[in-house]
């Protein structure tokens, strides 16, 4: 596997993670630490396959995934915001419900158990970017992804703009930082929280759709396989800043791609599986260690 292939895989595997992380970002920014994104993503995968199967169009599938995932998030939001249920407890319940419901529904809807495979022509096609394609390394890396991957890049910028350049973004940040102060400033905090969590649902649905349709066009029970938690890790690592979160997702994607590339070289899989987390720890430790070192350097009296 050469460098271009490695980076291509990096972008592909980081797309669902970064979409889920952006979703989690909106929830976190209004003060809800939503670990249920793993479950909402799984619902998104399932709804994407159901929608694609019955409408014979992956685009309907994507819309289904986003709507179903948003619906789930709104139920979650109702429990957390209106009924004051602990967000972590409620998230665990949401994950169990998503895992169980998707497995249960496979039977009445498709008559199969464990998985449902769509015909290969119903998946999302990978797009070749007309001009970029021609540029040697860049074209190979950037071209040939599914449409959701490109959307995910655009959404990173959109999230940044919404959060920092619009009054709605200001409301979101104010609600998350100090709800009482935001409310006293006339911000309808409850409504802002609901809207932010809806966006969380839509993005998780999109992440699920990419996972189910973008690359494999099938549903398998538990197919998110911890990607939602990876997204949360990226979010926390990047202090829930949109651009940095995307960077952290790329980092996780890169380590995943390296694991895939090294897998057949005879390294122990147990060590390879550690790589993403090892990288995360190093990145998390770098800033404090660097600042400590720079302080030490400054503190030592210089002798000339």
């Amino acid at each position: 596997m050469n460098l271009a292939q490695l980076l291509h895989v990096t972008l592909r595997v980081s797309a669902p993670i970064s979409l889920a992380a952006l979703g989690g970002l909106f929830a976190l920014r209004v003060g809800v630490f939503n670990i249920a994104i793993e479950g909402f993503m799984l619902m998104g995968c399932f709804a994407a396959v159901v929608g694609t199967h019955f409408a014979a169009s992956p685009y309907i599938g994507i819309i289904c995934a986003m709507l179903v995932s948003m619906f789930m998030t709104l139920i979650y939001a109702f429990f957390v915001l209106n009924l004051n249920v602990d967000p972590i407890i409620c998230a665990l319940a949401s994950i169990s419900v998503s895992t169980g419901l998707t497995r249960y529904l496979l039977r009445p809807i498709f008559g199969t158990s464990g998985r449902f495979i769509l015909p290969s022509d119903l998946g999302l096609r990978s797009l070749n970017l007309p001009l970029l394609e021609k540029i040697p390394l860049v074209g190979e890396v950037l071209s040939g992804h599914s449409i959701i991957v490109y959307i995910s890049w655009i959404l990173v910028v959109v999230t940044y703009v919404v959060l920092y350049k619009t009054s709605f973004g200001l409301s979101i940040r104010a609600t998350g930082l100090k709800p009482e102060a935001a409310a006293s400033a006339g911000i309808p905090t409850r409504r802002v929280q609901y809207i932010a969590l809806s966006i969380n649902g839509l993005l998780c649905g999109l992440a699920g759709a990419e996972l189910a349709l973008g690359f494999t066009n099938m549903f398998n029970e538990g197919m998110t396989n911890g990607r939602g938690f990876t997204a949360l890790a990226a979010l926390i690592l990047a202090n829930s800043e949109p651009i940095a979160t995307f960077g952290a997702c790329l980092l996780f994607g890169l380590s995943e791609a390296i694991v895939i590339a090294l897998s057949s070289e005879g390294y122990a899989i147990q060590l390879l599986s550690m790589l993403p987390y090892l990288l995360a720890i190093i990145v998390a430790l770098l800033p404090p260690v660097a600042s400590r070192i720079s302080k030490l350097v400054k503190a030592t009296p210089r002798q000339s």
């Binding site: 895989v9 494999t216 029970e221 057949s264």
Partner: peptide
């Protein structure tokens, strides 16, 4: 060549490994 996916329910990982 032998690769391990470390999961029995992750088709996306399986496809990446297959392609590699």
């Amino acid at each position: 060549l032998v690769v391990y996916a470390n999961s029995f329910s992750d088709p996306s990982k399986g496809k990446e490994l297959g392609l590699s």
